[in-house]
Amino acid sequence: MEMNRPRYSLAIMIISLTVFSFLIENMANDYILAIVCFTGINIVLAVSLNLTNGFTGLFSLGHPAFMAVGGYITALLTFPAEKKPLFLPDFPQWLDSFHLPFFPALLVGGCGAAFVAFLVGISVLRLKGHYLAVATMGFIIIIQVLLNNADTITRGPLGLNGLEDFTNTYWVSGWVIVTVYICWKIKFSSLGRSMLAVREDEMAANALGVNLFSTRSFALIVGAFFAGIAGGLWGHLITALTPGSFSLLMSFNIIVMVVVGGTGSITGSVLAAIIFTLTIECFRPLEENFGIYGVGEIVMALFLVLVLIFKPSGIFGTEEPDFVMGKHKP
């Protein structure tokens, strides 16, 4: 019986998310719905970044850049043709004919992000530790500059707007389940074990026949795919996209979730994403009543530093906690 505990946990998660989505779509107001959707998107982001950063020990800050790639591709593919003359007057004609429904557009966006990750990976994955962090930080800035200057397609700094509001809790829950499931499968496969081996001791892993470069590339590409999906969901939730949104600050926010939850722990990332998204919103009344704007960010940052001091591996470390796993330890 105990052997199947993770499977039960997954089933429970799927059922409860479905019921939850149904209830909340019908009962809550738009604000609550939007918070729930952002929480879900943050879960997708945190779990997928955990795949890259937590499992393999790559320290990539580039998640927002992949989100931007996925977000813009999805948005341009779903943009209603009749709105194009008003909203995108300079849009190249030959691109006009590409139009897709939301789901395939999301997949194309995700694949686009993954492809960019592949190209980035070839060049920067030789770097390690915070040198990789710095290179990917540079990558965020480069993507921002390019989006800012590609006026005809992206409308530059103004960004795109008037996207259809496709994203709802059903879409988000669906992608949360897919992301968690795939990352879970990867973590407990032989591939996942080689990833963890690369993180712990790459020389030993290499000696045992793990191909360092392809393992790392795989982690970066899969992470980027989900970041691209999250970008598409994000854009169609807000209905607008600007290059400025995909900044270092956003990267920081996602990393906080991964680090606090535990680098390598999927459950940790999920919980941290939920706690952080909700906490920031809970600080709003406080900020508004006392006019002390920015306190939420200060407390978040303080909390991060405290976690790093007292529990550097995060709340759950690399483990999945007992209430998900049962006594079964792979």
Binding site: D30, Y31, I35, W234, I238, T242, E288
Partner: peptide, 18 residues
Amino acid sequence: DAKTDQKAAALGAKKLLS
């Protein structure tokens, strides 16, 4: 607070409307 952030601007608008 829209936090110089599109996400916060959209969320803030929904909060106000609610």
